[in-house]
Amino acid sequence: MINKLFKFSVKYLPAITAIITILPLPVKAATFLVTERAVLGGTDLVNWGSLGKVFNPSAPDFSVFLPNSFSVTSQGGLGLDINIAPTNNPRVTPPFVFQTLPSPGIRSNFAPGDFILFGGIDPTGFIPLPPGTPDPGTQGNGEPLTISFAQPVLGAGTQIAIDTSKLKVETFLNAFDSNNNLLGSFSVPNISSLALDNSAVFLGIRSDTPNISRLVFSSSAPQFGLAINQVSILAVPESTYTLAILAFGVSGAVLKLRQRTWPNNY
């Protein structure tokens, strides 16, 4: 019986080896800056409107403010932990979500209707500005915004804006693996406005293996509020991990069986 099992295992060992070969293995990966959402090729999405707490400047309800750390689930069921570092400015509000819309709504250079996660702002920034009004340069919370994924991903990114058009601002993205190793560090110039023209820059990263566990967004002007819209995610299909476990389990069984039956071949 053992010999039959061994022969069966040896017969299918090439197929098992082929499966293992095509699966993502823990090797040193290459990472790439992505500045267009379409190029990222996302398969999953987080829309901040799904939190169910949206700030309306025309009828302020401060109960919709968010804690600096909270969790959210993507449309595909992936868990994300969000952390927005607090500011030292006591006048700045907690983080909140708003829908960017024409006046009397809050204008930005995201697309009209986008739900925006915002680090916080000095309360004077709640005053809706009519078309043509210059950016007042209201201060806010632009401290680092961290997104941690419950399961490593192949890529992720979002459009990002800093709440000032009076300064030349650089926005940064750092990506880390599950062991806190830096995978990549990128920066792009950021130009903000109130034009509602979807011109906010996209800042993302892709890897050739699913090892991205944490992203940190920040800017060179942390005294001004940092805002992002929906997060696109290039997730790893659950079936890939299931297949990997199965393949390695079967190959391990084959090796054990070979060790047991090896003496019978002499």
Rank of each mutant, 00 (worst) to 15 (best):
N83K: 14
G132F: 07
V64M: 06
D61E: 04
S58A: 14
P26M: 10
F65I: 00
G155K: 04
A85I: 11
I20L: 14
Q230S: 11
I106W: 12
G120R: 05
V39T: 15
T209E: 10
T209Y: 06
G125C: 01
P86T: 06
Q230F: 08
F118S: 13
G77T: 02
P134F: 02
I205D: 11
L215S: 01
G132T: 02
G132P: 11
L129R: 15
I147R: 11
P128G: 09
I233P: 12
P112N: 10
S199N: 03
V250K: 00
V169Q: 10
I106P: 01
F6W: 14
N174F: 05
L117E: 06
L167A: 01
F176E: 01
S9C: 11
E143F: 02
E36F: 05
S220R: 00
F224Q: 03
D44E: 05
A161Y: 05
D197Y: 00
W48Q: 10
P86A: 05
W48S: 12
G125D: 11
T31R: 08
N181V: 06
V27A: 14
A29P: 05
F6K: 02
L66G: 07
K53Q: 13
F126M: 09
F65H: 08
F248C: 13
L129K: 15
Y266C: 09
V188T: 13
G52M: 01
I106V: 09
E238H: 15
S58L: 03
D61K: 05
P237Q: 03
T43A: 11
I84H: 13
Y12N: 13
S193I: 02
R107Y: 01
M1Y: 11
G119D: 13
T138N: 15
V46G: 10
T133M: 13
P134M: 00
N68A: 07
L196I: 01
P123V: 00
T242Q: 15
N3A: 11
P144D: 03
L167E: 08
A227L: 06
L51P: 08
L129M: 06
L129D: 00
I191T: 13
K168D: 12
P112A: 08
T138G: 04
P152I: 06
W48T: 04
V54I: 13
M1S: 13
K166I: 00
S193P: 08
L78T: 11
S239N: 13
K256T: 15
A195L: 04
T73E: 03
V250L: 13
L80M: 08
T35E: 10
D135I: 06
